[in-house]
């Protein structure tokens, strides 16, 4: 197996890990958002969605473990790549002209990524932990709508989703590039789809706290 470790530790191997886990997370986000949008259906709809997931709990647990692994790989590998890359460029230029040759999104993946990581922890502490610790007795809708109606948490959530959008905007097409799927004909389409996807994800998630903060029950 030495070739496999050599491969995953190579510069391209590390990037492929990022791309592969990234693509899985991209898919996960769509599913997650679809579920969240049921909040718009009100308490009954949302709780029944959560209840449905309860029925397949063992499967959910397996998915959660896989998801956790994917997240950990993505996050720690990302930090590692960033750290190692910094060492390959120990001194930066006195005059910076980066905006002329690359996008802000592409240069700030580590920053947006770290914010999303912090968000993820808070997110788990806020929702996942109480829900699972509550043994299924908890009214999830009450919990979620309560947090979203809190301006501090709500706005934190909105900003985090905006940065997640930034992260995805670059990450989407970047994953394709890293997987080697860059074709003269189709790549601009992939970039466009990536931007649309990132925008929809960001707006989709962020719309919920906005809804609960400013529109729900008024």
């Amino acid at each position: 197996m030495s070739w496999f470790w050599q491969f995953t530790n190579s510069s391209i191997g590390k990037k492929l890990t990022m791309a592969f886990t990234g693509i899985l997370l991209i898919i996960f986000l769509i599913i997650h958002l679809a579920g969240n949008l049921s909040l718009y259906g009100g308490e009954k709809a949302f709780n029944s969605y959560a209840g449905t997931l309860e029925i397949v709990k063992p499967l959910i647990r397996i998915i959660e473990i896989l998801l956790a692994l994917i997240f950990i790989l993505h996050i720690f590998n990302g930090i590692r790549v960033w750290w190692e890359n910094k060492k390959s460029k120990p001194i930066d230029y006195a005059i910076n002209a980066k905006s002329k040759n690359s996008t802000l999104f592409s240069r700030t993946m580590i920053h947006t990524g770290v914010v999303v990581f912090i968000f993820l922890i808070i997110h788990l502490v806020t929702f996942w932990y109480p829900y699972n610790a509550g043994g299924g007795e908890l009214n999830l809708y009450q919990l979620v709508s309560g947090r979203f109606s809190d301006p501090i948490y709500g706005w934190f959530y909105i900003v985090a989703m905006l940065l997640l959008g930034f992260h995805l905007n670059h990450g989407f097409q970047s994953a394709f590039q890293t997987m080697g799927w860059n074709h003269k004909k189709y790549f601009s389409l992939i970039q466009l789809i990536g931007t649309i996807y990132a925008t929809l994800i960001a707006i989709g998630f962020a719309s919920l706290p906005i809804y609960f903060l400013y529109f729900h029950g008024r």
């Binding site: 391209i12 993946m109 670059h170 970047s174």
Partner: peptide, 12 residues
């Protein structure tokens, strides 16, 4: 050398 993070500055 570092690894690629697809900023595409090189191409530019």
């Amino acid at each position: 050398f570092g690894s690629c993070s697809n900023t595409y500055a090189c191409e530019a």
